[in-house]
Design a binder for these strands. Structure first.
Lengths: 348, 348
DNA sequence: CTGAAAGCGCTAACAC
DNA sequence: GTGTTAGCGCTTTCAG
């Protein structure tokens, strides 16, 4: 049996007694509401320091209807039949680590704590919606990894702020932060063309995911301006295995390919392996451009030339948008779109 | 301006009115405490369904002193000077995704929600400790990525349950779930020796991290039983770059090495690249064994033969231990140690 | 500018 | 068994 080490936690009452004022006054000082005489303020602050007082969140939450918490929902809701919904697969993409890390740090600045939720089953989805609806969190940061996800709409209906990473597949009145994905695709095309590639190919993510489609569209759009009327492509999961498989298919269709644009860095890594298997040297025979600038970009040989997403900034902006909307629920949905940047390394 | 979609959330009072009983009775039915007449029970349940009632966590928490939340703390507290403390680096190890995914799913079964906290600065560390001490969470699941971390001790002093992933570097009365790391090292040595390797080497994680040290010790121990009196080693970060750098050093010391045991899969991946750079073929010239069975193990060519940690099970066990201790704070610290398993693939 | 008092939604003694 | 009552710790009118 271990002893109970819990120490009595001081309450407002205690501080008030020490400071010789009322609870209400202490509350005002702590929340900086209304004017409080400077002298009193000082006394109270001293009492707070002396007692080591910290507000009880449950009590505060009960009356303010605010919890100081935000849900971070990772949705893997399957679009089509047979699709597996596994949000923890998203967690195994190191790029995602950059995003989540960004959330945690940004929310912390606002004194908001992230509650991690997976929406990987219908029940879990309901739970996430309810969690929001009941006010267990003040708002939601949503990362959806699948295409036509109904969750954004459901969360918005819960009547509390939601900010998404990436624009929703179907129009929903929700705030989001996104990357100009098509510009990213253009950057990649421009680079490959400038490099002298004559046979371009696309190893794309799932085309029902807006980001994947936009990247592909941007790539083809810019390729077309340089005379590439037809750019063959193969789509697959946003994973290493997906990239490898798609590349195999591409290679079967166009053996002479010399420039590949992959939907993300994990797929690019898969492409690298497939190319090597088929005896192609990168970048000499085939140039490869990835997407994200995930930590894996420097864990490949050659290092990946890739289209960078400023994930941390994007995550921080999401947090800002969310907090704004929590503070003023009347604010309309807003979108912030970041510009991608080509990071030159060795693969192209 | 968007309309406020929030709907009035029913309270106990509402349910009581609909059911024609008192709040207390409804509360009893909901919490399954004490005996309630079957007929009344039914009426209440019907009323709950009709109103769509769900308990308000803040209110409940205020009186029960329980929040239904657990902190998931990722500590990157630096041991030595000059060490960078970046928990989001841990998030970029896909193995970590397996662990966090395990936490989320296991806690969900207990109806406990995970709050993600980084202890990456002294302030953040204080915050985490306070968060626990004040009862904003019922307990903590701690993953420490650095060696001599003072956080476990501090969290335990907060007087609430803490369960660690991996045993603490210094003795602290805390529950933990661990892998028999030295057995894992033995498994690797055994396999390499059986394969006919004659010149073994170690690409180890930071030696102040117990897991890294245990793996190395186990490896050397078993190697010694097979006559390998001296096993050269190089230690570095648990990262791709760390594995690459350590392998370079090892290769400089022992050019003829033909069997390498890496501290984790990320390091093994780095080793693979370093070996290739130096013209060594894997597994023909050098056999490589990794550790973790992280998602990266199948994202290398050749695929990694590796020592598997049952991460999801370990995470689930941590959640169980934590919940047990939350429910009965008198329970002494307990440890659960899992057995590693060699997963044979192509690198060794 | 400050204090008194009410009450957020819930559980837990304590009566009946 | 079930209802009544008293708070949990905090914010917030409302007086003064």
């Amino acid at each position: 049996m271990t002893e109970d080490l819990r120490q009595p936690v001081p309450t407002l009452e205690d501080v008030a007694r020490v400071a010789g004022v009322s609870r209400a006054t202490v509350s005002r000082v702590i929340n900086g509401k209304r004017k409080v005489a400077a002298a009193v303020q000082e006394t109270v602050l001293a009492a707070v320091a002396e007692t080591g007082y910290v507000p009880n969140r449950a009590a505060r939450s009960l009356v303010t209807r605010r919890t100081g918490m935000a849900a971070v929902v990772v949705s893997g809701s399957a679009a089509g039949p047979g699709e597996e919904a596994d949000p923890s697969r998203a967690l195994s993409d190191p790029f995602f680590g950059r995003v989540v890390g960004g959330f945690v740090r940004a929310l912390r600045r606002h004194d908001v704590h992230p509650v991690l939720l997976f929406a990987d089953t219908p029940e879990a989805e309901d739970q996430a919606v309810n969690y929001l609806r009941l006010g267990n969190v003040d708002g939601t940061l949503l990362v959806s990894t699948h295409g036509d996800d109904p969750l954004p709409g459901r969360l918005v209906e819960a009547g509390r702020p939601v900010v998404m990473f990436s624009r929703p597949a179907r129009p929903v009145p929700v705030s989001y932060v996104d990357l100009a994905n098509s510009d990213g695709g253009r950057l990649a095309a421009e680079h490959l063309v400038a490099r002298g590639c004559t046979s371009l190919g696309l190893v794309s993510g799932p085309l029902d995911v807006p980001a994947a489609r936009d990247r592909a569209d941007g790539f083809r759009d810019r390729a077309a301006r340089h005379g590439h009327a037809y750019v063959p492509g193969a789509a697959d999961d946003f994973t290493f295995a997906g990239g490898e498989a798609a590349t195999e298919r591409l290679l079967a269709e166009v053996p002479g390919i010399d420039g590949v644009f992959a939907g993300n860095d994990l797929m690019a890594q898969g492409a690298l392996h497939a190319l090597r298997t088929h005896g192609r040297r990168v970048p000499d025979d085939v140039a490869v451009v990835g997407f994200d600038d995930s930590p894996v970009a420097t864990q490949t040989r050659p290092h990946l030339t890739t289209v960078r997403q400023p994930a941390e900034e994007m995550a921080a902006t999401m947090a800002d948008l969310l907090v704004e909307r929590i503070e003023d629920p009347g604010l309309p949905p807003r979108s912030v779109v970041f510009d991608p940047e080509l990071v030159l390394r060795d693969s192209a």
